[in-house]
Structures are given as C-alpha cells and as structure tokens.
Simulated scan of single mutants.
Amino acid sequence: MYKRILAAIDWTASTEAVLDQTRHLASLTGATVLVLHVRATDFPSLPSILGALASQALAGEPAASDAGSVAQRMVDDAVAVLSTAGVHAEGLLLESTPGHTPRAVLDQAREREVDLIVLGRRHHGGPSALFRSNVADEVFRHAECPVLIVP
C-alpha cells in the first residue's frame, strides 16, 4: 500500500503523534520514511530551540550554537526514534522563507514520489488565525497523494 511516507515535523505538540502514526503505518506496510522539517530562515523556531536545549541537557551534551544545528539535531532524533522501532528512515532539513513551508513539503513529496504525507495540524489562535494559512490545510489542498493530518 505505502512504499514511501513523508513525515513533516514542526516540533509542536503534535510531533510525537505524527511520529507515532508514521511508525505504525510504516511498520504495517514496510514503507520507508522521509522525516522532513522546514525551518524558516529569518527566525529560529522557539519550540525547536527549547526542545533541543532540553534534550541536550538531559543527554549531558553541549548546547548547539545556532538554530540550524538545533533543527538538524531534532530531525536526527526523529530518525533515530523510527530506526529504533525497525523503520527505515532518513531525515531532511530544509530552509525556506516564511510562508513557503507548504510548497517545500509538496515539492519534496512530488520529487520523492511519496505515497502518503503525515503531518500535524498547527492551531493558530486569536485574530491572527484569520490571516494566516495553516500548513496542513495548504498541503491537504494541493497534495497529489493522500494526506494524514494528526491532531
């Protein structure tokens, strides 16, 4: 059924659920997984920095010196989690300008000929939600393969 799955992660609360669903589906189907994180180049992601610093502190490792290193470490950690579960996975960190994350995800899905995209829904609250598109919604609208949106 699925041979290639793209798991788009953003280090919000849904990332763990995205990886769990991806692991489960890949285990059932024997699919390989591409773990993708698209980082906005103009500013570091606060959740990613805090998560990486906590992870490094628990592991007794020195803190990464820049947001790109932090993001790469998180992708590597996600690949390790999947690999430990017996899933063949590789990671990819892309940099993009703000607002172009959905296009980056869709481009990778097309280039890698994935059969399924798994990603979480990022909830924007307050008035800004009216003016900002949701990455999951944009990917869902324009994907050429099935999309699983994990709450």
Results as ranks from 00 to 15, higher is better:
Met1Ser: 13
Lys3Ile: 05
Arg4Thr: 15
Trp11Cys: 09
Thr12Phe: 07
Ala13His: 13
Ser14Ala: 11
Val18Leu: 12
Leu19Val: 12
Arg23Cys: 09
Leu25Lys: 09
Gly30Gln: 05
Val33Glu: 03
Leu34Ala: 06
Val38Ser: 01
Ala40Val: 07
Thr41Pro: 00
Ser48Cys: 11
Ile49Cys: 02
Gly51Leu: 00
Gly51Thr: 14
Ala52Ile: 10
Ala52Gly: 14
Ala54Thr: 15
Glu61Tyr: 07
Pro62His: 08
Ala63Leu: 15
Ala71Ile: 10
Ala71Asn: 07
Asp76Ile: 10
Asp77Gln: 14
Ala78His: 14
Ala78Trp: 13
Val79Pro: 10
Ser83Thr: 15
Ser83Asp: 11
Ser83Asn: 15
Ala89Trp: 08
Leu94Thr: 11
Thr97Gly: 12
Pro102Ile: 01
Pro102Leu: 03
Ala104Cys: 02
Val105Ser: 05
Leu106Ile: 08
Leu106Cys: 03
Gln108Asp: 06
Gln108Pro: 01
Ala109His: 12
Arg110Asn: 11
Arg110Gln: 13
Glu113Cys: 02
Asp115Ser: 03
Leu116Val: 12
Leu119Met: 12
Gly125Ser: 12
Gly126Cys: 05
Gly126Ile: 09
Ser128Trp: 04
Ala129Ser: 15
Leu130His: 06
Leu130Tyr: 07
Phe131Asn: 01
Asp137Gly: 13
Asp137His: 14
Cys145Ser: 05
Leu148Ser: 04
Pro151Lys: 12
